[in-house]
Design a protein around this nucleic acid. Structure first.
Lengths: 251, 251
DNA sequence: GGCCTCAGTCAACACTTGTACACTGAAATT
DNA sequence: AATTTCAGTGTACAAGTGTTGACTGAGGCC
């Protein structure tokens, strides 16, 4: 019960995010009028708007997933891939930055949802660190485009975008710290040191996640190697934390 | 003698890299003709070319330092800031990517030079971890633009650029691992685990370096806090590594 | 001195970009 | 049924982009 609660979002639920190229989705909306398969044959206006908005977001994410840099993606490009005319973009976002902030919120919400789900079901089973890392790895691979975006914009985005991402990251670290404390896993470590440990864990995981993202096909063996290595790293950190116990070595 | 040999480049030598706006430098070159202060009054042709090339590199770095995204910087923009006409760019680079690769090489060379210098002078004095971190911190602050660039392009650059940066990073990790081994600091740890420990150290430092970079003025107190926190992190990792000693806990 | 090399210049091209404006037609409201 | 709202369309323009080709003139070489 320790190191890696950060990775306890995600579980099974397979959403269709980032599965479509935006344009396909947009076309699907219009086809829906004559399509008897659709449960809601006529979409309400705001529902339609919501879907177009999502198409734009998905288009941007798809482009990022194809290797383009988010800050280099133009409004026209994302509009084209979403299957709408460029000027339509402004009905939903004033800016590409605003769209980016939307993506950050998206991922944040998904993460929080998973976090809550796992906590409610007390979903810790077997060896915790390993299963948490495994879950996190699957989550990253399943939302590859979102994470690609995050990694790109964490350093390369606008000021607001960077701030939003940084904020999201420190949220994880804090949640992690709080979990550790609540589970009385490091009784003798004071609050500041606890914060440090969680930062360290987050750093260890996030640094190597880049490798995972760049592995295009993410073959099962590679993924397994990644999990193994990450688990080892976390165990080492954990070992250090247990030895630490707030005794601060003399300066 | 342990954790942080990675940070043993840099020392004192103050170069003037990234100090000028490119255009100033370019102007200076032409003024040199009538300037009696210059030791070499008439510059050789290839020397002049070399300086213009450097102006272009500096201009790009300056723009990055001002908050622009490297992948979003145009050839025209960098040429203008370097004080040359856009088409002149092609006399030196075919691409912005090529210029980027040049920057990576630049930083790599500076790092290697420092590494060598510190090793030759056996420059470890006093408490090693702290002084290494301090040196690294100063180095980052002194070459802020270079590091800004590295952090941006590590995730957001072209494929070749990312590969080059990744390569440079793993070079550090390997050097670090080799130093640790050579100094017999972790005798009972096998090679693979050694690699892991150095990766962990690099991750811990590089993750938090972002904070350092975003601190615009990098006030001395903030810098000191950064050093303190980083030192604590590395000590914790080191503690863990000592407990580790290749005993692999049962799966 | 005279030719050659080539870094830097100038003008021009075909594009892509963000964004403003007037519009259309179906959903929502009255 | 008439009216309003507003997501999506189409056109248009100024600004910036990469890249071309022909040029200029000073440094290097004979």
């Amino acid at each position: 019960m320790l190191a890696f609660d950060m990775a306890t979002f995600m579980v099974v639920s397979v959403q269709s995010d980032t599965q479509f190229v935006g344009s396909e989705r947009a076309i699907a909306i219009y086809q829906a009028h004559g399509d008897p398969l659709d449960s809601q044959r006529i979409l309400s206006r705001e529902e339609k708007k919501r879907q177009t908005r999502q198409s734009l977001v998905d288009a941007a994410l798809t482009l990022v997933g194809q290797g383009e840099n988010f800050t280099g993606i133009s409004i026209r490009e994302v509009a084209k891939n979403a299957g709408v005319v460029p000027t339509s973009f402004y009905r939903h976002f004033t800016d590409m930055e605003e769209l980016g902030l939307d993506i950050v919120d998206d991922l944040g919400m998904m993460l929080r949802r998973k976090l809550r789900a796992v906590r409610q079901t007390d979903g810790y089973s077997g060896e915790l660190t390993r299963s948490s890392v495994q879950l996190f790895t699957d989550f990253v691979c399943h939302h590859r485009n979102h994470f690609y975006f995050m990694y790109q914009c964490r350093a390369g985005g606008t000021v607001r975008l960077r701030a939003a991402i940084r904020n999201e990251l420190s949220f994880f670290a804090n949640e992690l710290a709080s979990d550790i404390r609540q589970l009385h896993m490091l009784g003798k470590v004071d609050s500041a040191d606890l914060q440090m440990v969680s930062q360290l864990i987050v750093a260890a995981v996030f640094e190597s996640t880049t490798d995972l993202l760049d592995q295009v096909d993410s073959s099962p063996t590679f993924r397994q190697e990644f999990v193994d290595l990450t688990v080892k790293k976390l165990r080492l950190i954990w070992l250090g934390a247990e030895c630490w116990r707030s005794r601060r070595p003399a300066d």
